[in-house]
Simulated assay, not measured.
Amino acid sequence: MTPMEELKRLAQTFVDGQDRSMELVGEIEGILVSNFLGAELFESLAEAVSLYRPGEGLPYYDEEEMKLALQESLGINPSNT
């Protein structure tokens, strides 16, 4: 599986609500840093993944804001499962 495929798989898991943990977002961040540093994709998601703290309020990203960031950056939608 390519890094992009793995990134999309993890993002889909988040978007679908199967896992919204900070650990999952940490995995997403790791793939971004290891494989997409300096790329437009990294720039579009770096703030969201680094500030993801559900329930903490501003300036942090909550679950819905993280979901939207992943959807917009990766062009994914919720599965119909």
Rank of each mutant, 00 (worst) to 15 (best):
M1D: 11
T2W: 12
T2K: 04
P3Y: 08
P3L: 11
P3E: 11
M4A: 08
E6P: 05
E6R: 14
L7T: 08
L7G: 05
K8N: 12
R9D: 10
L10I: 05
A11F: 08
Q12Y: 04
T13R: 07
T13I: 15
T13P: 00
F14M: 03
F14G: 00
F14K: 03
V15F: 08
D16R: 04
D16A: 04
G17M: 02
G17D: 01
G17N: 00
Q18Y: 09
D19T: 00
D19A: 04
D19W: 06
D19G: 00
R20K: 07
S21P: 00
S21D: 02
S21K: 02
S21H: 03
S21Y: 05
M22C: 05
L24R: 08
L24D: 01
V25P: 01
V25Q: 09
V25A: 09
G26I: 10
G26S: 15
G26C: 09
G26D: 09
G26R: 13
E27F: 15
E27I: 10
I28L: 11
I28F: 07
E29S: 15
G30E: 14
V33W: 09
V33I: 15
V33R: 15
N35E: 14
F36K: 06
F36S: 06
L37C: 06
L37R: 13
A39H: 14
A39E: 14
E40M: 11
E40S: 13
E40F: 10
F42D: 07
F42S: 05
E43Y: 08
E43C: 06
L45M: 10
E47C: 11
A48P: 10
V49M: 04
V49Q: 02
S50E: 11
S50T: 15
S50Y: 14
L51Q: 12
L51C: 07
L51M: 14
Y52T: 06
R53W: 06
R53D: 05
P54R: 00
P54A: 01
P54I: 01
G55R: 01
G55S: 03
E56N: 01
E56R: 07
E56T: 00
P59N: 05
P59F: 13
P59H: 10
Y60E: 02
Y61R: 09
Y61M: 08
D62M: 02
D62W: 05
D62P: 04
E63D: 03
E63H: 01
E64F: 02
M66H: 03
K67Q: 06
L68I: 07
A69P: 07
Q71C: 12
E72H: 03
S73Y: 04
L74S: 03
L74E: 02
G75K: 00
G75D: 05
I76Y: 09
I76S: 12
P78S: 11
S79G: 08
S79W: 10
N80E: 12
N80Q: 11
T81C: 04
T81F: 10
T81M: 07
T81G: 12
T81Q: 10
T81I: 13
T81E: 10
